[in-house]
Design a protein around this nucleic acid. Structure first.
Lengths: 222, 222
DNA sequence: CAAAAATGAATGAGTATTCATTCAAATTAT
DNA sequence: ATAATTTGAATGAATACTCATTCATTTTTG
């Protein structure tokens, strides 16, 4: 995303400035460009009907370009999922480390992150769901998603455990609370994807907050 | 493959069932059979790689059979989603009307329904997610899912409203509670699909119950 | 110039759809 | 009842088309 908009800007600047647009880009740039095009195509046409021709056209490049940089369509898709997952993880970790210092603030920041425009965006959600829809038949996708999920769950669970200790909450254990929060996020993304007229980021945030308030009332007031 | 092996299979099924071997079945029976085969194929191979040949083979019938009964692959998929949605709705309505009489019992029954084996089954979840994964690019799928969701949400919200009135709960409104519950269910299905080793139906039910207990403590004890 | 990057036409495997034909079952006639 | 006729479900080979992949050629870079 940022990479791509930057790329576009840089390109136009170069064209304007030097009148010699680079026709060849570094390997990493091209790969990002192609992955970005792939996501756009998946969001617009669906994973099953996205062809390598579509991706190349979306990227403004030629037919054979994907095989040149990714060897196969299968590989392109795997790398696309990896890129999507990486991007989320970077934001997650950045949020985790920059927020705080209290666990209540960290937890809140992480949950709010999930409904920030850069993440809770229908185009991007469509891509996530496209991959989740293939999870049963593609063990690799499942493994990749599972691995990330476990990491996030463990962080959330740790934060919940701290809140429970701090607030001396009874009747709730950290794992259950973390499970509920993580699954609520996923379910709310689904709602944003399927019912955009009924759901928006604010409403989704509300639903999560209501859970936080009722389970950790001493940390999240009102 | 040949007429004879198909004939043999169908014969034995029919003989067992009706004692009258038939090579031809009623239109509705065949359609159901084909939809069932479609779901099996989607769960096993994914939506994108499921071919009409796969479906026909899975059903033990011949190549052209799907177009004969459904005109097109597109139509077969739409009808498959419709069938899946219908099946859920029937169970939902049955549960709604048979449980009770108190709203707390009805709500609990509806939430437990979502994690009963017949519904929270990885094969079936895979099919749901396959369709959700195409929602952005297929307006029809989106509309179908959206329509159902609204109905379920409205029922759940009604029940929450009754609980809130009965229990004089403050700090929670029916819509927020219903939103949280519905989205949690969807998120938990995702967890069951992606992390079957970590998640099972019992754990998922737990997560939902924890929310119920913390939001409606006077109705769901302990 | 050599190496790397990119092109885009050609290939061929695969697949949705069509349709002439077969055949079991139901209907009608004898 | 038996035979003749009609029906329409089912088949599966043939068709037309799409698309991933390859590669000879061209363009760009250093």
């Amino acid at each position: 995303m940022s990479i791509h908009s930057n790329y576009g800007i840089i390109c136009s600047l170069m064209i304007a400035a030097t009148a010699t647009a680079r026709r060849t880009a570094s390997r990493e740039k091209r790969r990002h460009q192609l992955i970005d095009a792939t996501m756009k195509c998946i969001a617009r046409k669906g994973m099953g009907s996205t062809t390598l021709g579509d991706v190349a056209r979306e990227a403004g490049l030629s037919q054979g370009i994907v095989n040149l940089h990714f060897e196969s369509k299968d590989n392109l898709l795997k790398e696309t999922l990896a890129s999507l997952a990486n991007e989320y993880r970077e934001q997650f970790d950045k949020t985790l480390h920059r927020s705080g210092p209290r666990p209540a603030d960290k937890l809140l920041a992480l949950l709010e992150l999930d409904f920030r425009p850069s993440i809770c965006d229908r185009r991007k959600l469509a891509v996530w769901f496209a991959f989740w829809g293939e999870v049963k038949s593609r063990p690799t996708y499942r493994r990749m998603c599972d691995e990330s999920d476990r990491y996030y769950d463990s962080v959330i669970e740790g934060l919940c455990a701290e809140l429970i200790a701090e607030g001396k909450y009874k009747n709730i254990d950290a794992m259950t609370a973390a499970d509920a929060l993580s699954s609520m996020t996923n379910g709310l993304w689904q709602a944003c994807l399927i019912s955009p007229q009924t759901w928006d980021r604010r409403k989704a945030t509300n639903a999560v907050m209501s859970y936080l308030r009722s389970v950790f009332p001493r940390h999240y007031k009102q």
